[in-house]
């Protein structure tokens, strides 16, 4: 696990989901209420290249170094949150 100081520790998956919803809302400049966590990120307007930069947010916020393609392998907010939560808690989701 590659975590550094001053990074967040999520209590549960929902917290990661909420954080990702905020990121996407910010990227798309739309209200968080309009971001459906079950819809593919591509359909939320994050094209395949832009979505790669989510890894930078993850690294900054959670101190977790992930391959940029993590958002390709887990293409919805729900799926991505589940994966990140498992990574952050050492595999137990």
């Amino acid at each position: 696990m590659n975590t550094s100081e001053s990074t967040a520790r999520p209590a549960d998956i929902d917290e990661v989901v909420d954080w990702l919803i905020e990121r996407v809302a910010e990227y798309r400049e739309i209200p968080a209420a309009d971001v459906d966590p079950e819809v593919p990120l591509a359909e939320l307007g994050l094209d395949s290249v832009y979505v790669l930069s989510l890894c930078g947010d993850v690294e900054d916020h959670y101190g977790l170094v992930v391959e940029p393609t993590v958002a390709w392998d887990h293409p919805t907010i729900d799926a991505l949150a589940k994966h990140l939560h498992a990574e952050l808690t050492g595999g137990a989701s």
Binding site: M1, N2, V65, V66, E67, E87, G91
Partner: peptide, 9 residues
């Protein structure tokens, strides 16, 4: 899979 660990290795 732990990308962080892989990266370090």
């Amino acid at each position: 899979m732990n990308p962080a660990a892989t990266d370090h290795a």
